[in-house]
C-alpha cells in the first residue's frame, strides 16, 4: 500500500518533468536542423576562398575577417546600429502608447483592435512600400494638399524621414504584441491603488505600469532592433540607398560581389554582435526580475 502511494507520488512528480522535456524536442530539433546546422556551413564558408565565378573553393584563410577591419565597413556598421537604436526607441514609444490604449479598452474590444493591427500586413510588403512612396512622393496626396496652399515641390522621397516612417511601419506590430501581452497581465487594482495614493498619469506609469511591462518591452526591443540590422529594401526605396545598412552590405556581398565567403564572415561578425546584445538584455532581465523579487 505504502509503496503504491509512493509510486504514484513519484510518478506525479516526475511525469511533468520528463513529459516537459519531450515537449521541447520538436522545437529544439527544428532550430538545430534548420538553424544551427546551416550556421555551421556559414561558419566554415567564412574561412573559405571565393573563386572568380562566385563559387567557393576549399581554402582556409582569415582574409575575409581581416578585410572587414577596413574603416568603410565599420562606418556602415555604426550607421546601422544608430538607425537600429533610433527605430527601436520610436517603435517602443509608439508601441507602448498603442498597447496602453488597447489594454484600457473594454475587454471585448481588445481582440478586434489587435486584429486591426495585423491585417495591414497581409498585403504584400512591396505593395505597402510602394503605397508609401505614392503617399510621400511629389504626386501624392500630401503634395497635392500643400500645393493648394501654394507650397510647391513637396516630396519626402527619398529622405531619411521616409526611412524612419517605413521602418516604424514595418516593425510596429512586432513591438505592440509583446508589450500588450505583458501589460494585460497587470492587475488593474494596482493602477487604481496608485491613483488613490495620489499618483498622476506619469506617476502611475513610472512606478507601476512601466516596471511591470519591463519583460515585454525588452522582448519588443530585441524583436525590433535585431531585424532592423538585416533590412535592405526600405533604405533603397524610401531613402535613396546612399547610406547602406549592414543588411545591404551582406546582400551585396552575397549577390552582386558573388563573394559568399566574405558575406559569411560579415554575417558571423553581425551574429556575434547580436549574441552579445542578447546576453546583455538577458542580464538586464535577470536584474529586473531580481529587483521585483526583493
Amino acid at each position: 500500500m505504502t509503496s503504491t502511494t509512493r509510486a504514484i507520488q513519484l510518478g506525479r512528480k516526475e511525469r511533468p518533468k520528463r513529459g516537459s522535456l519531450l515537449l521541447l524536442v520538436p522545437g529544439i530539433a527544428s532550430v538545430v536542423l534548420l538553424g544551427i546546422l546551416p550556421l555551421f556551413i556559414v561558419a566554415r564558408n567564412s574561412f573559405a576562398v571565393a573563386d572568380n565565378y562566385g563559387g567557393i573553393t576549399d581554402g582556409l584563410t582569415f582574409d575575409n575577417y581581416a578585410k572587414l577591419l577596413d574603416p568603410v565597413y565599420s562606418k556602415t556598421l555604426f550607421y546601422s546600429l544608430g538607425l537600429g537604436v533610433l527605430n527601436t526607441v520610436v517603435c517602443l514609444v509608439v508601441g507602448y502608447i498603442t498597447s496602453y490604449y488597447i489594454v484600457s479598452r473594454p475587454p471585448n474590444r481588445q481582440g478586434f483592435l489587435l486584429l486591426l493591427v495585423i491585417i495591414p500586413f497581409w498585403t504584400d510588403f512591396l505593395v505597402r512600400t510602394f503605397a508609401w512612396i505614392t503617399i510621400l512622393g511629389s504626386g501624392g496626396p500630401i503634395a497635392g494638399v500643400l500645393g493648394v496652399f501654394g507650397v510647391a515641390g513637396f516630396s519626402l522621397i527619398p529622405s531619411n524621414v521616409a526611412v524612419v516612417l517605413g521602418l516604424l511601419y514595418s516593425f510596429l506590430p512586432t513591438a505592440i504584441f509583446p508589450i500588450y501581452a505583458s501589460m494585460r497581465s497587470i492587475d488593474p487594482s494596482l493602477k487604481e491603488a496608485a491613483t488613490d495614493l495620489g499618483c498622476g498619469w506619469w506617476g502611475v506609469h513610472r512606478r507601476v505600469i512601466l516596471p511591470l511591462t519591463g519583460p515585454g518591452i525588452l522582448g519588443a526591443a530585441l524583436l525590433t532592433f535585431i531585424p532592423t540590422m538585416g533590412v535592405f529594401v526600405i533604405p533603397v526605396l524610401l531613402g535613396g540607398g546612399k547610406d547602406p545598412l549592414v543588411g545591404n552590405l551582406i546582400v551585396t556581398l552575397y549577390t552582386e560581389f558573388r563573394n559568399q565567403p566574405m558575406g559569411a564572415a560579415a554575417s558571423m561578425v553581425l551574429l556575434l554582435l547580436m549574441l552579445i546584445s542578447m546576453v546583455l538584455v538577458g542580464l538586464g532581465l535577470k536584474r529586473s526580475s531580481a529587483k521585483k523579487g526583493a
Binding site: I133, G139, S155, I157, P158, V236, L237, G240, G241, K242
Partner: peptide
C-alpha cells in the same frame, strides 16, 4: 558624384523621372 545624387535606385527610377523628383 555622390553628394549631388538624389540616390541609387534601379527599381522605380522611371517613376521618379516622370514625376520630376
Amino acid at each position: 558624384q555622390k553628394p549631388i545624387l538624389s540616390g541609387y535606385n534601379s527599381t522605380n527610377y522611371g517613376d521618379l523621372v516622370a514625376s520630376g523628383d
